[in-house]
Design a protein around this nucleic acid. Structure first.
Length: 500
RNA sequence: GGUCGGAUGGCCGAGUGGCUAGGCACGGGUCUGCAAAACCCUUUACACCGGUUCGAAUCCGGUUCCGACCUCCA
């Protein structure tokens, strides 16, 4: 049976500003679109947080039994670096600086993006369309918007007519809470705006100046698509005119997502998205992580710790775990202290997982209270995930379970105090939640049979030394192993070890 | 300036009209040859001022501070 009926999912919908029970447009199927990166530079940790939110959502939807089509685009058309219409685009600029082809820039940073996501154990989306691969679809959409009278042509560029759209449809600004009059009065004095009828209008097709490298022929001349358009065109192509979930960073809410809605409505006459989801920013010392502030760092810098903001290196799983300990809709502040705390917490859960794997159920006197407690903690883990993806609370449930698992391992509790069914469920679902839903994996690696054999040998030698009260030898073994990152644990029923 | 959001204990971070979030750190204990690990116990909260309520950290109003967006941004 599909688990979504057992643990029905609720999501906070940015559009309605309410938490809503998630109902799919088509039974059992979910269409999800997430705005991907513009590939003109390395992704940084802030980017990772957004994609992580939707990676976990994707995993959870699958786990609940939905059939999910997850589309995440790559923006590989260079959009203008500033407001000035004659400006260079970001990708072209980077290409000029590095003296390479624009598509080499795109390829380089697309590869980096993929490598990074792999590092953090992200699942691949079902479709990863590129803007350059969908120029025709975008031209068609521009034409449709023109045909419907919501855009106009000036000097080879096509602009979306926001005031006219607003008059007809009246929902521009609803998603981001903007009021048109306020936007008008706050419009900055910008160069190169004279082509637009209203400063609120935005380009859906832009004429390419001679210097522009990435350009395509269109009914309006050589040019390139407006930034907001690609997501509308590609989401429509792969998910339909109406689909379930659209996600992205909070900073895309306005104008990007607002414009997406307007474009789809202007083109197809229908609001495209049922549930809008926005992931909040990663901050450093309270400020948004961004390149311009110089407070961002790349995953590579994170691993090595080679950055002024980093006291030491942190592993990808530590970071993934750190991020999941907060709710996606809250800002999350990065700090070394927080990362170090997460590192220890992460290791604690991983050890509990390994311990759980080694536990064997033995028939005994079932403790109904304990049995119930374990069952409830597992249920709550799912209930919390279903409550707008509350990974923080879910992880709290896992820590509660870890305590019980450790107690069973060290003999303070007995596996037989659980019914066979509950024990089996624990052994199955605890790792499932970590591995399949949260995407958290052990990273000690190198735990080969050889290492295990050697460790057993050393532990035996040490046991003998201890039996003979030769503590110099036993401590030497323990201390040396410790220096190698291997921890010796003397328990009630023998000695075990773990790799740190 | 406009719009929106936030302010939780030593640090990070959930949540909620009355019931221990959780992690990390600190302290005490059990275990141990000594440790480590593990387990048990314990301490420090809800920015400020009013209001609603039997009861508010949670709702409402105001104040202060911080942030995001308004321009490319995850």
């Amino acid at each position: 049976m599909a688990r979504y009926s057992e643990f029905p999912l609720s999501l906070y919908n940015s559009y309605t500003r309410e938490k809503e029970v998630f109902k799919t447009l088509h039974p059992g199927k979910v269409g999800m679109y997430v705005c991907g990166p513009t590939v003109y530079s390395y992704v940084h940790l802030g980017n990772v947080r957004t994609f992580l939110t939707f990676d976990v959502l994707y995993r959870y939807l699958i786990h609940l039994g939905y059939q999910v089509r997850y589309v995440r685009n790559i923006t590989d058309v260079g959009h203008l670096v500033d407001d000035i219409d004659e400006g260079e685009d970001k990708i072209a600029k980077k290409a000029r600086i590095d003296n390479i082809e624009p598509m080499e820039v795109v390829q380089k940073y697309t590869n980096d993006f993929h490598d990074t996501l792999k590092l953090f154990n992200f699942l691949n989306p079902s479709i990863e369309p590129t803007a350059t691969g969908h120029i025709i679809e975008q031209i068609q959409m521009v034409q449709q918007i023109l045909d419907n009278g919501f855009a106009y042509i000036v000097n080879g560029s096509v602009y979306f007519d926001v005031p006219k759209y607003q008059e007809a449809k009246g929902n521009y600004g609803r998603l981001s809470g903007r009021v048109l009059e306020d936007l008008m009065s706050n419009t900055r004095e910008l160069d190169g705006q004279e082509e637009k009828k209203s400063p609120l209008d935005f380009a859906i097709w832009k004429k390419a100046e001679a210097m522009h490298i990435m350009k395509w022929p269109s009914p309006w001349g050589m040019g390139f698509p407006g930034w907001h358009l690609e997501c509308s065109a590609m989401s429509t192509k792969y998910l339909g005119k109406e689909f379930d979930i659209h996600g992205g960073g909070m900073d895309l809410k306005f104008p990007h997502h607002e414009c997406e809605i307007a474009q789809s409505v202007a083109s197809d006459g229908i609001a495209p998205v049922k549930y809008w989801m926005h992931s909040n920013m990663l901050t450093v010392n309270g400020q948004k992580m961004s390149k311009s502030l110089g407070n961002s760092f790349t995953p590579a810098e994170l691993l090595t710790g080679d950055h002024p903001l980093l006291k030491k290196g942190y592993t990808p799983m530590t970071v993934r775990f750190f991020m999941l300990q907060s709710h996606y809709s809250s800002t999350l502040d990065f700090s070394n202290d927080a990362l170090e705390a997460s590192e220890k917490g992460y290791k604690r859960l991983m050890k509990a997982w390994a311990t759980l794997d080694s536990l064997v159920w033995k028939s005994g006197n079932v403790d109904l209270q304990l049995d119930k407690e374990i069952t409830e903690a597992l249920d709550e883990a799912y209930t919390n995930l279903s409550d707008d993806l509350n990974t923080a609370k879910c992880i709290a449930n896992l820590f509660d379970l870890a305590t019980r698992i450790n107690s069973m391992a060290n003999g303070q509790l007995d596996s037989g105090m659980l019914s066979k069914g509950t024990f089996d469920r624990l052994q199955k679902e605890f790792p499932e939640i970590l591995r399949d839903i949260l995407g958290i994996l052990p990273e000690d690696g190198g735990d080969s049979g050889v290492v295990d054999g050697l460790m057993k040998l050393l532990i035996n030698i040490r046991q003998n030394a201890r039996a003979n009260k030769d503590f110099a030898t036993s401590d030497q073994i323990r201390n040396t192993l410790n220096e190698l990152g291997i921890q010796i644990k003397d328990g009630a029923d023998g000695t075990s070890y773990s790799l740190n």
